[in-house]
Design a protein around this nucleic acid. Structure first.
Lengths: 374, 374
DNA sequence: GTCCTTTCTCGAATCGATTCGACTAGCATC
DNA sequence: GATGCTAGTCGAATCGATTCGAGAAAGGAC
């Protein structure tokens, strides 16, 4: 049992009393936010030290000020998955790069926590309840003390939560989200980029091409990519990238994965390549990580890239695997996207009305594409 | 100019008034925390919907409850660097895995923000100040509304901030930190693990061995590893790993990097290998990422691993580069460490007094070590 | 019909700070 | 010596909820 658990901590009021000044003056002394004589400030600080006062309570401060200095970053399902994708990390980093110096930190939130769970059954408020509060409902986007929110490729599942957050007057910035009213958009030319890649393969002569998608819809198992599955897709980015490819290969099929990881790419690669009879001559992966996995799978099957199989990715990640270190891909400015989102947040918080921005990815011809073999 | 910027948002009190009940009842209705008749609850919820009330303000709630549902994760210098290390990500994920279901989210903080910056000059509080608050002091560990804090291999720089946080009565858990009073420790056998690796090389016959360290001290340039530099090291983990190696190779030299990245490993590799005259027969890297970089550098110089050079790492990361995909290393349970830290946090928040835990890494013989060439 | 529970509702105190406007000296100016 | 200014200080209101204990109404037992 820790002893100091018992003794209650001093408040600003206590410090003020001990220093013989009013609470208002003590506050000014701590914040350097008004005219306070040097002598008084000294006295207040001394009193604080004597009482072991650790400074103003952030919770109270944020209530009064109406700002918590916290920006929520809403990522997909689980942190582990989100962290696996270098794009997310770059964007997070970009946001922090802009908002950090302005005094904000990032709160990691996941879509799971979007819809606040409410325990239905009422419970008696026993007068002698000594234990912890019976059921703390899972924290969520909805009851996090955030000043603003950045959505990372949000799916439809967050809609409700976003509506609530907006109703509260909290600025929302969406990175590659389906355009929503009142939400500042930071976009990417996913459709055009994907079309360019598809066109590249088409121009090389490929007619038998398969697509490996990012997570299209949450909660569904990976598997064959069908038109109905595409139409049911909830991930805006994934669907957009499909649409771009369809402009070149209208009836394209392929494989829908669980997300942007090398392992998923390997799995998809095997699903598409194991059977020589149905093997495509090229594969369009919706991310470089997936592409790297496909290349790996191809290698495991004894296929050479690009001789036996062409592979394109998306993102412009540097993958360590030398086989996939020079992918043909679209390079997207992820860090800059994050910075733009961060600027948007700051603008909105300052009461401005920033315009949505859209970034352009750039085609990079690597060594993983070539004409199909006859 | 957004219109709804003007209209002020409804409060719980307004909703209560509109529903014809008291604020207390409205609160109970929203929280299911007391006996409220179904009819009343309905009425309150309807009133809320009508007024566009988004639910209780998290800031006010956290002040009153004394809990914000936020756990601070204090990482090293910059997020980008921290994110680059898979160990950090795994540990973060482990923490979230435990604390998330309990209703907490993670706030990312960096050591930079440790010592709160105070703007010295007092400024006049003009009555007509319309703009933004003049100078928001950078947010920091100190004024973030966190319920608890987890330190990731903290260096000495955070000491002051940690002291303040502790004074506030906030539980602190340190992962691989220098043991501090009142801080729950989640440790790793860095010293023993490093000794095992060194012994492995020694047993193979290596006598000319160099060490590539993690960031030893913040703010210093990378460069030669000297005894004085080791003694001045502020990173507990890095120093411990050096000590373990010294138990086998007392006078070992090498190269101190800026952190656990492949690029740093490449740089260190070249620094140690470029000159054939001083080339060691084996290199001990303090992380797998560094080791992968060293292997790459060796390859660039035409050296074969393990024939011309043995390399060991630390961590047990899976590196994509096939050259380094089967490193001899110590595998550490990073995810489990994170989970343990999360459990510690929850225990401490619940008023318990958990014991420090220490994890053990496991030797894994890969294909990057062999006896030295004669 | 009285008394005792149970169920529901409310008023008031509280969480811990920030900030606005008012007030008091002290000083310089005419 | 009265007046006007400025720097320093303080009181009181406020941020928006939660929670405790008290009280009223409803229902049941005797």
């Amino acid at each position: 049992m820790t002893v100091d658990q018992q003794r209650e901590r001093p408040t600003l009021a206590a410090v003020a009393r001990h220093a013989g000044v009013s609470a208002s003056t003590a506050s000014l002394a701590f914040n350097n936010s008004g005219p306070v004589s040097a002598a008084t400030r000294e006295r207040v600080l001394a009193a604080a030290a004597e009482l072991g006062y650790a400074g103003p309570d952030p919770r109270a401060r944020s209530l009064r000020r109406g700002r918590s200095g916290i920006i929520g970053a809403v990522l997909e399902e689980t942190l582990s998955n989100a962290f696996r994708d270098p794009m997310n990390l770059l964007m997070l980093d970009g946001i922090a790069d802009v908002t950090g110096p302005a005094g904000n930190s990032l709160l990691l939130l996941t879509e799971t926590a979007a819809a606040g769970v409410h325990v239905p059954g009422p419970q008696k408020a026993g007068p002698h309840a000594t234990g912890a509060p019976a059921a703390a409902s899972p924290s969520s986007l909805i009851d996090a003390p955030v000043d603003a929110v950045v959505l990372f490729g949000c799916s439809t599942r967050v809609d409700e939560a976003v509506a609530i957050v907006r109703r509260r007057g909290i600025p929302v910035v969406a990175i590659e989200g389906r355009p929503m009213a009142g939400v500042l958009d930071v976009g990417l030319d996913n459709r055009v980029g994907s079309r360019i890649l598809a066109q590249h393969l088409f121009d090389l002569g490929h007619r038998d091409v398969a697509l490996v998608t990012l997570e299209l819809d949450q909660g569904r198992l990976p598997g064959a990519l069908t038109p109905s599955r595409i139409d049911a897709g909830t991930s805006f980015t994934a669907v957009e990238r499909v649409r771009g490819v369809q402009e070149v290969y209208p009836g394209i099929g392929g494989y829908a994965t669980l997300g942007s990881t090398i392992d998923e790419g390997i799995r998809a690669g095997h699903a598409l390549l194991d059977d020589p009879a149905t093997r495509p001559t090229a594969i369009i992966a919706q991310s470089d990580l997936l592409a790297a996995g496909v290349v790996r799978a191809a290698a495991e099957l004894g296929l050479r890239v690009p001789d036996d199989l062409s592979v394109v990715g998306f993102d412009g990640v540097r993958v360590d695997d030398p086989l996939a270190s020079d992918l043909t891909t679209m390079v997207q400015p992820a860090f800059e996207k994050g910075r733009a989102a961060g600027r948007g947040v700051l603008d909105l918080l300052a009461g401005g009305a920033p315009e949505s921005v859209s970034f352009t990815s750039e085609f990079r011809r690597g060594s993983t594409t070539a004409p199909p073999r006859r």
